[in-house]
């Protein structure tokens, strides 16, 4: 069985400085994969390269396949149309459009074979908070509401694979797990998700598989149960307290 999303030997450099060095990973169908690493490790660079997108001017080499089809040559908007949905880090919604207009930008594909289709009602069920904000401009939403909107619009595009780059950034700690658990519920319905997360503790609670990225290379990876006790994860991110709990 082919992976829903796979990339191999992805190398990215900005102005000649290598930020990602020959990274390969894959996301199986119905899996939630976590990607963690220190600030500047290259997590965003990796997921952006997978989506063929950037706000800078990266030089990218390597290949990306989506449900077995090579999409390396496609532009960012075409990859999105093919069902590879990235919710980027930072600004990820349109501030001058209302919630409804943001959601209305997305058009579901006509051919839904192999796609995970979500209706607007599904999105509002998943994030009831958005229902009250439908006529508000994106710019007036709170950090959590923005993330919900960003995830919601990605779902409306009927993703094959969903990639989330630090959806918890700027959220209050008690909201982080709540958001991640809602996303986990989508995975349980079959949607493959690649999650970039700063909060390793929270990530470990929801993902099936975890990769650790450092200075542009994957230095460790494995099932969550194994990674929980991996020395590098424990030392750098969890501290002794978490080991006790595990």
């Amino acid at each position: 069985m082919t992976a829903a999303l796979a990339c191999s030997h992805l190398t990215v450099s900005y102005d000649g400085n290598v930020a990602l060095n020959g990274v390969s990973l894959s996301v199986g169908s119905g899996q939630m994969i976590g990607l963690v690493g220190a600030n500047g490790a290259g997590k965003s660079t990796l997921v952006n390269a997978v989506a063929g997108w950037s706000r800078g001017r990266p030089a990218v080499s390597g290949s990306v396949t989506l449900d077995g089809a090579d999409i390396s040559a496609l532009a960012a908007h075409a990859r999105a149309q093919h069902g590879l949905l990235l919710v980027p880090e930072g600004k990820n919604i349109f501030a001058e459009l209302t919630v409804d207009e943001n959601l209305g930008l997305v058009r579901a594909p006509r051919d839904v074979a192999g796609r995970h289709v979500f209706s607007i009602a599904d999105v509002f069920n998943l994030f009831p908070r958005l229902t009250e904000r439908r006529t508000y401009k994106g710019g007036s939403l709170s950090g959590g509401e923005r993330q919900m909107l960003a995830v919601g619009r990605a779902l409306l595009a009927a993703p094959r694979v969903l990639i989330l780059d630090e959806p918890s950034a700027g959220l209050a700690p008690r909201l982080i797990l709540d958001l991640l658990e809602r996303i986990r519920s989508l995975v349980d319905r079959g949607l493959p998700v690649l999650l970039v997360e700063q909060n390793v503790k929270a990530a470990l609670k929801v993902v099936d598989h975890l990769y650790l990225l450092e200075r542009g290379r994957i230095i460790a990876g494995g099932p969550t149960t194994v990674m929980k006790s991996d020395a590098r994860i424990v030392e750098a991110y969890l501290g002794t307290l978490a080991v006790d709990r595990a």
């Binding site: 997108w53 960012a76 908007h77 600004k91 997305v106």
Partner: peptide, 9 residues
């Protein structure tokens, strides 16, 4: 740029 991620050319 963000629009591209919404599938907009």
């Amino acid at each position: 740029r963000l629009a591209q991620l919404f599938g907009i050319n």
